[in-house]
Design a protein around this nucleic acid. Structure first.
Length: 863
RNA sequence: GCGGGCGUGGCGGAAUCGGUAGACGCAACGGACUUAAAAUCCGUUGGGGGCAACCCCGUGCCGGUUCGACCCCGGCCGCCCGCACCA
């Protein structure tokens, strides 16, 4: 018996697959009419090497792709590189390597690693976003959006990352820090390019309802991010001194009679104007700014305000005056940057009112409360109820009162019902070199102009220097000088490049026909889109996935393709984690330097070299700093890639984190060997041979059909771990069968079982599966073999095992043919010896029979 | 604070229609093979009691619905993730 040798088998079969072109997806025109399946994993950033997390991600996608191929779909499973980005420039600055060299070198390494994983990719469609052929088309798409007014330029306050020397989108600022650098983000005024994603706010929210194969969590996150609310925008006229009214936004117009002040954000133009003349106001605003975003959460939101001395008139009562404050808790970039405060029904307003002695006037009466005695203490009342103390609104429910207040505001001309979003337009300008140049030139005479189509791509120059921070394109001696496409005069190129999230917001469309002259070939996109199954990390729940949905919609509206949603199914897979270990002095040590032993219920670790005790730390995401990383190469070297692929999918549900353990990968390796042993050690009958009525053989056939059913359902339901468990169980069953001297019937059954088994393991362990398939003389490649069918009749059990309960406690079990009638089951159950013992001296009140499942005998004291 | 998810053996996890809780794997223990070890194979393994047949307890906690609840309902506790002064 020869042991399965992955080091020989893996390269061998990979070469065979490549030579046969088995993973080539057909062109759309050749495949038209055939059912298609587009399986896609989020393409990687070429950071240098593949990590175990990539292995899990691509192995999952590969299971789906191989499974669907076997099920007869024409499958598109492509791969590319999200290749622009800052790491390349940092490498250039730190090590003097050109970003292009660094990027393409990394791609070469990672491509090789991916190929060694045996992932069933159509490599003929590969591209990198830093290929001029790709980003040139992206420039064409950008100009299309520009022409339609969806890309525009505006001066505004932007998030500036002082470490990366670039602007960040709102989505890229996390807790006031840059998402990559972790630096405290500053506010700067700059002229920037924006994509008008807010035009699609409603559409993007409404579209979420159609995404029934997306995780609820991601849909909710996107909905919250877009943050739609409806309410009233209304104008407060000033009592004196100013002509222009103050515009505020509220979602609670029903509480207008509870207003006790009006407040504006420190950045509000009114506040700025006051500060110019009032040093105390200026000092207050400066204090608010110092607080800033980062400190806000530490301080847990203490309310501070400055009374401007101005007053506005209440819209429902000309004699009612409200003071105007500047308050630190008002945000300039939401609504109008100004509010009216109703302390009784808003907690922030209440805190503020209590601090500054402003009136608290309840105007919503909770159900069952007494209007004469209802008071607000430390907690604002935000629940349902009826308006009171509210003039014409009295007696109305909250929702009715809102509508009535809006109607009055509109009738009297001081306000209107509006919908407001948290979502801002997408700022896409980045002051970096290694990105897609924005294809615009600025002419002193003609203004900003699109670069003509025949001059695309606007290619990045190679001769750039990274000796100082900032954008090398800005400093380049010649690159930015261009002729004006309109007047031919001197013009200057835009030196900003596009946010790399633009690159990843349409790459899945390009895969459908990566050679097309136009950015997206309509027929190809219409055949393959939408992506049927997209797989990646949940960290992209809002950024990438929202941008991609927006861009797809924008292109669909421009008749570039039919699909409005890019990803029909989304799966967010968990991370690969590992225990971490620290020495007594606090230094992290690598897993392979540590020996862990189990002592009763506790585990202890020691450093192998010195025997010193080691502290077992948390199980967390693999990271270099914690030194809890295992490298895919070393694992593949020791166990083969099939074992590695199998393990990352076998130990936990795919959406959950999986904990990498030495024992676990060894278990996966053992499974491979046991499977091979079944194929290698014994003769098998031809799969077509008759099985007859040999009991063991029949039972094996039944088990095989049950296994096919279980695996089919497990893969379709993304329950890979459960599916793999069934393979283990099936193998245990095979092991239990007599090996030597088996009957011809059993040999025939084994032949059928192994033929199915080879095909069932193929998505998970494709190399071993080919070797096994060849061993039993399977036709062609298992990668091209059809998925086995199961016979539902055979997959179902012949006999049912029914538990028999007495008063809900299990007291015995009976075996009956499937479908045995309830009366018969009841008779059998009552006759069971174990059951009889528990009926002694009691009388049967009732018997519940669920056919093929359970019999429950309800008893009581003897009459 | 708001939203989403999750609590099952020593560990990862099964049980997705309300019907035998703990499949499968890991770890551990016992045994076979071996001069020995590794590898492999066989067996045991939720807790407690009993020589045994068996019995009792058990899915975070408290209560409810039901013949029957890990599953449904109400109320707590804990953990993870996302958003967070969004008017």
């Amino acid at each position: 018996m020869a042991r399965y040798n992955p080091k020989e088998a893996e390269p061998k079969w990979q070469a065979v697959w490549q030579a046969a072109g088995v993973f080539r997806a057909p062109d759309a025109e050749d495949a038209a009419g055939k059912p298609k399946y587009y399986a896609l994993e989020m393409f990687p950033y070429p950071s240098g090497r593949l990590h175990i997390g990539h292995v899990r991600n691509y192995a999952m996608g590969d299971v789906i792709a191989r499974f669907k191929r076997a099920r007869g779909f024409s499958v598109l499973h492509p791969m590319g590189w999200d290749a622009f980005g800052l790491a390349a420039e940092n490498a250039a600055m730190e090590r003097g390597i050109h970003p292009k060299t660094w990027t393409y070198d990394n791609i070469a390494v990672m491509r090789d690693q991916l190929k060694r994983l045996g992932v069933s990719i159509d490599w003929s469609r590969e591209f990198a976003t830093c290929d001029p052929a790709y980003y040139g088309r992206q420039q064409a798409l950008f100009l299309e959006l520009y022409k339609r007014g969806l890309a525009y330029r505006k001066e505004g306050v932007v998030n500036w990352d002082p470490v990366d020397h670039t602007v960040l989108a709102n989505e890229q600022v996390v807790d006031g820090l840059g998402w990559r650098s972790g630096a405290v983000v500053e506010k700067r005024r700059l002229t920037q390019w924006f994509l008008r994603i807010t035009d699609y706010a409603d559409d993007l929210i409404d579209g979420l309802k159609t995404l029934d194969r997306w995780p609820e969590k991601v849909r909710v996150m996107q909905e919250n991010w877009i943050g739609r609310s409806s309410g009233l925008r209304l104008n407060f006229a000033f009592a004196a001194g100013r002509d222009e009214p103050l515009s505020v936004y509220t979602t609670r117009p029903d509480t207008l009679y509870g207003a006790s002040f009006v407040a504006v954000a420190p950045d509000h133009p009114l506040a700025q104007e006051i500060a110019a003349k009032d040093p105390a106001a200026a000092a207050f605003i400066a204090e608010c700014r110092r607080g800033g975003t980062s400190e806000a959460e530490i301080e847990a939101g203490e309310k501070k305000g400055y009374d401007t001395g101005l007053e506005v008139i209440h819209p429902f009562d000309p004699n009612w005056r409200l003071p105007v404050w500047i308050a630190n808790f008002i945000l300039m970039d939401y609504g109008t940057g100004a509010i009216f405060g109703c302390p009784a029904h808003d907690q922030r307003d209440l805190d503020f009112a209590r601090k500054y002695g402003l009136p608290v006037r309840p105007v919503v009466l909770p159900p069952d409360a007494d209007p004469a005695s209802f008071e607000i203490a430390d907690e604002a009342y935000v629940g349902p109820g009826r308006a009171f103390n509210s003039g014409f609104l009295d007696g109305l429910e909250v929702a009715e009162a809102k509508a009535a207040a809006i109607a009055r505001a509109e009738a009297d001309g001081f306000g209107e019902g509006v919908t407001v979003y948290r979502l801002r337009d997408w700022g896409v300008s980045r002051q970096r070199y290694w990105g897609c140049p924005i294809p615009i030139v600025y002419c002193d005479a003609c203004g900003p102009l699109a670069v003509p189509a025949d001059q695309l791509p606007v290619a990045l120059p190679d001769d750039v220097a990274f000796d100082k921070p900032g954008n090398p394109l800005e400093r380049h001696p010649t690159w930015k000088h261009a002729a004006c496409p309109q007047c031919g005069g001197k013009a200057t190129r835009e030196t900003d490049t596009l946010d790399t999230f633009v690159d990843s917001s349409w790459y899945f469309l390009r895969f459908t026909n990566p050679a097309a002259a136009r950015p997206v070939d309509r027929a190809s996109a219409d055949y393959w889109m939408p992506v049927d199954q997209y797989i990646g990390g949940v960290e992209h729940a809002v950024l990438h996935l929202l941008y991609a949905r927006f861009v797809t919609r924008a292109l669909a509206d421009d008749d570039v393709l039919a699909a409005r949603e890019p990803f029909a199914g989304l799966f967010t897979q968990g991370m690969v984690t590992h225990e971490s270990y620290r020495r007594q002095n606090g230094d992290w040590v690598e897993p392979n330097e540590v020996e862990v032993v189990q002592e009763g219920d506790t585990r202890r670790a020691t450093l192998i070299e010195t025997g010193e005790p080691v502290v077992i730390g948390d199980t967390e995401k693999m990271s270099k700093s914690k030194r809890n990383v295992v490298s895919p190469e070393e694992i593949a070297e020791a166990y083969g890639v099939d074992a590695a692929r199998l393990f990352v999918m076998s130990d936990s549900p795919p959406e959950r984190d999986v904990q990498w353990t030495t024992g676990g990968i060894q278990g996966a390796w053992r499974l491979g060997n046991r499977i091979w042993d079944e194929f290698d050690s014994q003769p098998v009958g031809a799969p077509g041979a008759a099985v007859g009525d040999d009991a063991k053989a029949v039972e094996l056939i039944r088990s095989t059909h049950r296994l096919i059913k279980a695996l089919t359902e497990a893969i379709e339901g993304f329950r890979f771990n459960s599916g793999i468990a069934r393979i283990y169980a099936f193998l245990n069953e095979l092991k239990g069968l007599p090996a030597a001297g088996a009957s011809p019937a059993l040999l025939a059954a084994r032949g059928q079982a192994l033929s199915a088994l080879a095909r069932l393991i193929a998505p998970f362990m494709p190399h071993l599966a080919e070797e096994a398939w060849a061993r039993i003389g399977g036709e062609g490649l298992v990668a091209q073999a059809p998925w086995p069918d199961y016979d539902p009749a055979l997959a179902a059990d012949e006999t049912a095992t029914l538990a028999v309960q007495v008063n809900g406690k299990r007291r015995g079990e009976i075996h009956l043919p499937k479908g045995t009638a309830a009366a018969e089951a009841e008779k059998m159950a009552l006759a069971d010896a174990g059951v009889q013992r528990h009926l002694d001296g009691l009388s049967v009140r009732k018997v519940i029979v669920v056919p093929d499942r359970i019999v429950n005998i309800v008893v009581g004291p003897a009459q």
